[in-house]
Computed example of a mutant assay.
Amino acid sequence: MSSRGLLHHMIINVSNVERSSPFYTAMFRYLGYELNDSSYGEDYGYEDWKRWDLNTPHEISICQVLEPLKAVPHQRGALGHHCHIAFCAEDREDVDRFHREVLVPLAEQGLCAIEDAPCDCPEYNDGYYATFFTDPDGLKYEFVINPNHLLKKAAREAAF
Rank of each mutant, 00 (worst) to 15 (best):
V104E: 10
A89D: 03
E90L: 14
C112R: 04
R100I: 02
Y40S: 07
H84A: 05
L106N: 03
F23D: 01
H99G: 04
C63G: 02
L66V: 06
E115G: 15
D126L: 14
L69M: 10
E108F: 06
S38F: 12
L111T: 00
H99Q: 08
G127L: 13
Q75W: 00
I62L: 08
D48I: 14
H82K: 05
I62Y: 06
E47R: 15
Y124F: 15
D37A: 14
N125H: 13
A107E: 15
V104Y: 06
D37R: 13
H99F: 12
M27V: 15
L79Q: 05
Y24Q: 08
F98E: 06
P73F: 11
G77S: 01
G127C: 12
A71Q: 03
A89R: 09
H99C: 13
E59G: 07
P73E: 10
L103C: 10
L31V: 03
T56M: 09
C83K: 05
G41C: 06
D94I: 08
Q75P: 00
A78K: 09
N125A: 15
F98I: 09
Y40T: 03
V95E: 03
E108N: 13
A89K: 12
Y124K: 10
E90P: 02
A107H: 11
L69V: 01
E42V: 01
C63Y: 05
S38G: 05
R97A: 08
I85C: 08
R29T: 12
S39T: 02
L111H: 05
Y33M: 13
G41K: 08
D126C: 11
C63T: 04
H81Y: 08
L66S: 08
E67T: 05
P57M: 04
G77T: 00
S61E: 00
A26E: 12
H84R: 08
P122F: 11
D120C: 12
C112W: 04
A113Q: 12
F98Q: 09
G127M: 10
F87L: 14
V102R: 03
S61G: 02
A78Y: 07
A26M: 09
P118H: 14
A113M: 10
D48T: 05
P118E: 08
M27P: 00
A86M: 12
Y33D: 00
G45C: 07
Y40L: 14
Y44W: 11
E90A: 13
H81R: 06
L31F: 07
Q109K: 11
Q64I: 01
R100F: 02
E123W: 15
G32R: 14
S38M: 12
E59A: 12
T56F: 13
S39F: 13
H84V: 05
E93R: 08
A117V: 12
F28I: 06
Q75T: 09
G77R: 01
P105S: 11
L31T: 02
D43F: 02
Q75F: 03
L66P: 00
L106G: 02
S38N: 11
F28Y: 11
T25C: 10
A89L: 07
S38D: 09
K70G: 09
